[in-house]
Amino acid sequence: MIEMQGEIERKDGGGLDEKFDIGTLSTSSTGSIFLTIGYHQLEGSRVPLKKPFAILEKDTSEGSTGYQVVGVVREKYKFSARPRPLISKPRA
């Protein structure tokens, strides 16, 4: 789970409910988390959740509805600072 302040908008106008890559997630030896989106980099940290929660999948079989646990989220990556612009070397 990733927590951010603000919004992520797609340039092509597609919704966030569709599957797409938003960036590259990496870690440092100090435990910091970095999320690079285009030419911007966010620095964050790994935070345990006070109460873990389950990811459920709806199961409809034989006329009845049930739910199956497909995962448990125990921590989140929290990015609270503004993104830092990455400046690349201009092409010659």
Rank of each mutant, 00 (worst) to 15 (best):
16 L>A: 10
78 K>A: 09
61 S>Y: 15
26 S>W: 07
81 A>C: 11
79 F>P: 13
77 Y>M: 02
22 I>V: 12
53 F>H: 00
29 S>E: 11
43 E>L: 08
78 K>F: 00
5 Q>G: 09
56 L>K: 02
10 R>Q: 09
14 G>K: 15
57 E>S: 06
81 A>S: 13
37 I>M: 12
21 D>P: 12
90 P>V: 03
26 S>C: 06
70 V>Q: 13
12 D>Q: 08
88 S>N: 10
88 S>Q: 10
63 G>W: 07
26 S>T: 13
62 E>F: 15
61 S>L: 11
12 D>L: 09
87 I>S: 14
22 I>A: 10
78 K>M: 01
1 M>T: 12
28 S>E: 07
87 I>T: 15
22 I>W: 11
73 V>N: 06
70 V>N: 03
7 E>Y: 08
41 Q>G: 01
83 P>T: 04
91 R>M: 08
6 G>T: 10
14 G>M: 12
79 F>W: 07
79 F>H: 08
71 G>E: 01
18 E>V: 11
45 S>D: 05
89 K>D: 09
73 V>S: 02
90 P>R: 03
22 I>K: 09
84 R>H: 15
16 L>P: 15
84 R>A: 15
49 L>V: 02
60 T>K: 13
23 G>I: 10
85 P>E: 13
73 V>K: 04
4 M>K: 14
38 G>T: 02
47 V>Y: 02
56 L>S: 01
35 L>Y: 06
37 I>Y: 11
27 T>I: 07
11 K>M: 12
59 D>E: 11
65 T>S: 14
19 K>R: 14
19 K>T: 14
25 L>R: 03
56 L>V: 02
4 M>G: 14
27 T>Y: 12
34 F>W: 06
90 P>T: 04
61 S>A: 10
18 E>M: 12
